[in-house]
Write a protein that binds this DNA or RNA. Structure first.
Lengths: 149, 149
DNA sequence: AAGGTTGGTCAGAGTGTCTGACCAGAATGA
DNA sequence: TCATTCTGGTCAGACACTCTGACCAACCTT
């Protein structure tokens, strides 16, 4: 007897599709020669278009700067990011996405879109879009983003 | 400059509210004297009304049975569950929620409802309900539940 | 210039998760 | 019925992730 999803708590309802999507994307990326772990990806995802500082990534992911540093080391070794000097602050370094990293982003987006198409078949495109809008408003409220880019 | 949530990938849109809700609930439970970690809670949540086997919990959470065993040990030590013999199979044991565990469930539900009220203020009750319905249908599709209870 | 603040690293500990090996009870079928 | 295979669970060890504490160098104030 499967669980009754309609009465299930909202946390689990968010978690189940999240986890599914994450696994699908990560697995496909691995198969295509772009291995990345979930932890690495959660940091990688938050890197801004012009690079991000470690502390900002830490704030965005709700991790300590040490943990983010550890994960960025791995992303760097994998060739997905580099640490560039920050012209405005000699202490800081900007974690920046490499060309390889960009390919990974594009591949990830492609696979994500594929899953989303499946979901659109399931829900209808309108309901899916509406769900996304609701989640976006919630994210705006629940995200800890740094004020600066 | 905050990120633009409307164009953000769906995975992050699911993750951000999920993580927020989880932290709120876990923190409140801790303050009320029911400490539980996120990993423990993810297993605990999947225990059925009449108890669940380890292997079924492993399937539901997408963890190995060893990992689930490790977490159930802790839940048992904390007094939230017990392992009862399974009348139908002498090998198996049913992980069952204790009265203390039930109190935790109720407290968690109460706090979750509180957050959900905030979300209803943000989105409107109708949009929130619609989002829940969409997520429930997605969960049905993406969840790995065991066929048996 | 002095003193506090901030971005980042180093070192070490604790937690969560996995793989591999194994055992005992259950299910199958000759 | 009993040999074989399958399944629920545990034990042991390794690896991955995250944290706290201590620290340094550059920044920002005054």
């Amino acid at each position: 007897m499967p669980p009754d999803y309609d009465v299930m708590n909202t946390g689990l309802l968010l978690y189940l599709p999240y986890r599914y999507l994450e696994e699908r994307v990560l697995e496909a990326l691995r198969e295509q020669g772009y291995p990345i772990t979930a932890s690495q990806a959660r940091v990688f995802q938050r890197i801004g278009p012009h690079g991000s500082r470690l502390v900002d990534l830490a704030a965005a992911t709700s991790l300590t700067k040490q943990s983010v540093g550890f994960l960025v080391d791995q992303l760097e070794t994998a060739g997905y990011v580099t640490r560039e000097p920050d012209a405005r602050d000699a202490r800081a370094r900007l974690v920046t996405i490499t060309p390889t990293g960009r390919t990974l982003v594009e591949e990830g987006a492609r696979i994500g879109a594929e899953v989303e198409r499946e979901w659109a078949d399931l829900l209808g495109a309108d309901d899916l879009a509406q769900m996304r809008r609701a989640l976006a408003r919630l994210s705006e409220h629940t995200d800890r983003h740094p004020d600066r880019a």
